[in-house]
Design a protein around this nucleic acid. Structure first.
Lengths: 135, 135
DNA sequence: GTTGGTGCAAACGGTTTGCATTTAC
DNA sequence: GTAAATGCAAACCGTTTGCACCAAC
């Protein structure tokens, strides 16, 4: 989260934010670009990336940085946890109280200045458990 | 972790594993390639990538996938947590008991099949706190 | 001798960037 | 009017892959 500087509210930026906040999935930049193109057919992927970067720096949205894979974006800026399905790659929100006490504990027991934490589960979503699933 | 299949122990594979396990840092493939080149100057980056992939599938090492950044590798295969310093980008091991009970809780309360979790802290390491650090 | 591994270089794919043009303010 | 934002395309960079040669077993 950075000092905002001057931000102009362009149509593109507005629509990107609206589309992202209208879904509970965690789209990639490419997916979001497709969604936005239904309303702004000429928007470029570069613009989507630039705006996602600006909006996340300003704290309006969240970059998920899901381990290793393609970057995903989340319209919900409150810290919350995710589960990534190993089979279909989708990312789901997890309902669980935040483990803020572990931050304090770590700060106390180590010399680190702890500014946040990210907890991510991996597993299989219900849909993928349903499908045969060799596993 | 996958069924091993046939694995030949080549010099390259041996040295890659030794070098990785000899450090407590979490080198990227490129960094590790440099380290290995001190002993095997003609090894290629592609070989390093291929072996890191094979070794991690076989469970001998761990891919870290530290959020967003370049992939890092860890010779320690036991699950453990990390702190990433926002200032210098280094990744440190965190000594903390595993939160395995949250996996069980999530599995119970949601429909997910939970296979693992990854906890990552962000903050500032001691060295970077020392340096003036505007914050 | 067979088959998996290596080195090399090219390809890949997600992300960033340079630039001329457009647009919010 | 001016500075920020856009669209486009090229560049970037970490990673993967195809292939001819090599080496472990």
């Amino acid at each position: 989260m950075e000092a905002p500087g001057k931000l102009r509210m362009t149509t593109q930026r507005q629509v990107i934010m609206e589309e992202l906040q209208s879904v509970k999935s965690h789209p990639t930049a490419g997916e979001l670009c497709q969604m936005v193109r239904r309303r702004l057919p000429r928007i470029s992927l570069g613009t989507v990336y630039r705006n996602l970067d600006i909006l996340s720096r300003a704290g309006f949205i969240q970059k998920l940085d899901v381990a290793g894979q393609e970057m995903r974006f989340d319209g919900n800026t409150m810290n919350h946890y995710h589960l990534r399905c190993l089979e279909c790659g989708r990312v789901f929100d997890v309902e669980m109280d935040l483990l803020d006490e572990v931050e304090e504990r770590l700060a106390r027991e180590s010399g680190f200045e702890v500014l946040g934490h990210r907890l991510e589960f991996v597993g299989r979503c219900e849909a993928c458990q349903g499908r045969a699933g060799s596993h």
